[in-house]
Design a protein around this nucleic acid. Structure first.
Length: 327
DNA sequence: CATGCCCCCTGCACGC
DNA sequence: TGCGTGCAGGGGGCAT
């Protein structure tokens, strides 16, 4: 998925469109994503006002005035696109102005191509990094808002999902009850990591990928944070545990490294990988700032380090690290 | 309880 | 050009 920075970028892009808006119609184009879509989905959302759009870990939470929350997870390839109200009934492209996304509104064409295959006249803007022209084949859910704007959920692999959960049940829901701390919140600190790491036999990579420990980190940013903090992904997580009742230097280094890389990625509008490539080949920003991820065989980017970045497999996922400066 | 592995699904890059 | 292979940001579920 999009990891935390990408989800936060989407949230910031969608918030001005969704927050306060009323859903006139929910268009559901298939029965399921990763899981079945909610029972009576359209009936429970149509006519409701979206009170706020929040994020928890990699989940987007659209609070409805009905007392339910629409929970949305982007999986690996989920994305949102926004149809502008002014474009809804117009046959001509009118893409300017609605800066919803992290990438296209900075670098993409100022006049996105109309999509011949999408609905609503095909005039859409990126809510995240959206291929110019779009791919309506994987448009699974469309929120038609009062006033004419629309928000479309597109997800080729369908690893994403949507849930409708009564607010009162949200905290206790299995999907949220066991989530760890937000990495950008005060909950993440060296003492917390030390406490959670005590007695763990998993390696650091698995430990940091575990959403029950820190919620929102994924494969890319774990690799990046470990590189920034000079820690090997293969080291036992227990190395973070207290020594002489004090947090270790490793835990002290890891916390700011995690924060810094996430904040930089959010500031850059979220990274993109190939699934988010523009049709014209323009790419997002932050991936160009990866210091290890995707750099197998290249010289380590740490100043003065002579190491070569290695790619290994942990738990079936690629890990990138420098064996020289990450110990 | 913790850990490791497989799987869901589609698209794309690569090598032959 | 076409086909097979491997790989991709996540995370639920299962066996151990």
């Amino acid at each position: 998925m999009p990891e935390l920075p990408e989800v936060e970028t989407v949230r910031r892009g969608l918030e001005p469109v969704l927050s306060g808006a009323r859903v006139a119609r929910l268009e559901q184009r298939r029965p399921d994503l990763r899981f079945p879509l909610p029972e009576r989905f359209a009936a429970r959302v149509e006519g409701r006002r979206i009170v706020s759009l929040a994020r928890r870990a990699k989940y987007l939470l659209a609070r409805l005035d009905s007392g339910e929350t629409l929970v949305m997870h982007l999986g690996m390839t989920g994305r949102f696109t926004v149809g502008s109200p002014r474009c809804a009934d117009s046959p001509t492209p009118c893409g300017e102005g609605l800066g919803v996304g992290g990438i296209q509104d900075r670098r993409g064409s100022p006049h996105p191509q109309p999509s011949p295959t999408s609905g609503e006249g095909g005039n859409r803007l990126a809510a995240f990094v959206h291929p110019a022209g779009g791919d309506a084949t994987h448009d699974h859910v469309v929120l038609h808002l009062e006033g004419g704007a629309s928000v479309t959920y597109n997800d080729a692999r369908r690893f994403g999902f949507m849930l409708l959960i009564p607010d009162a049940e949200l905290e206790a829901h299995p999907m949220f009850a066991n989530l760890g701390v937000e990495p950008l919140g005060n909950g993440l600190n060296p003492d917390y990591l030390a406490f959670m790491a005590a007695g763990r036999r998993a390696d650091l990579k698995a430990f940091l990928m575990d959403q029950r420990i820190v919620a929102g980190l994924g494969n890319i940013y774990v690799c990046e944070a470990l590189h920034r903090s000079g820690l090997s992904p293969n080291r036992a997580a227990a190395c973070l545990a207290l020594k002489s009742r004090k947090p270790t230097a490793r835990a002290e280094a890891l916390v700011p490294a995690i924060r810094a890389v996430l904040e930089a990625a959010i500031a850059a509008g979220g990274s993109t990988l190939r699934d988010y490539r523009h049709a014209d080949g323009a790419l997002g920003y932050f991936q160009h700032q990866f210091l290890v991820y995707g750099r197998e065989g290249s010289p380590c980017t740490r100043p003065g380090c002579k190491g070569i970045v290695r790619r290994t497999i942990q738990a079936g996922r690629s890990t990138f690290h420098c064996p020289v400066c990450q110990r």
